[in-house]
Amino acid sequence: MKKVVTLICTVMVASITLLGCSNPDDTKKTEDSKQETTKKKELKADSKATYGFHDVVDVDGLRIAFTKAQLLETEGKKDSVLKLSFELSNPTADTEGFTAINLEVKNKEGELLDVYPGENYGKEIETGTSDKGAGYFMVKGSAPFSVTYIDPDHKAVTATWKLAIQK
Rank of each mutant, 00 (worst) to 15 (best):
M1Y: 14
M1R: 14
T6A: 06
C9E: 03
A14R: 15
I16L: 13
T17E: 13
L19A: 15
C21S: 10
N23T: 07
P24Y: 08
D25K: 04
D25W: 01
T27P: 00
K34R: 15
Q35P: 02
Q35T: 01
E36W: 08
E36A: 10
E36Y: 11
T37E: 11
T38L: 08
T38R: 05
K39L: 00
K40C: 03
K41C: 02
K41R: 06
E42W: 12
L43M: 14
K48S: 10
T50S: 12
G52M: 05
D55C: 12
D55V: 14
D60I: 04
G61H: 12
G61W: 06
I64E: 14
T67H: 12
L71S: 10
T74Y: 15
G76H: 02
K77W: 02
S80A: 05
L82H: 04
K83L: 11
S89Q: 06
N90P: 14
N90S: 03
N90A: 06
T92A: 12
A93G: 14
T99A: 10
T99Q: 10
I101G: 09
L103E: 04
V105H: 01
K106T: 10
N107I: 02
K108Q: 13
E109P: 05
G110N: 14
L112E: 06
D114E: 12
Y116T: 11
E119D: 04
E119C: 01
E119W: 04
Y121M: 04
Y121D: 00
K123H: 02
K123W: 00
I125W: 00
T127L: 01
G133P: 11
G135Q: 01
M138H: 05
K140W: 00
S146A: 04
Y149T: 09
P152F: 00
H154R: 01
K155S: 05
T158V: 04
L163P: 00
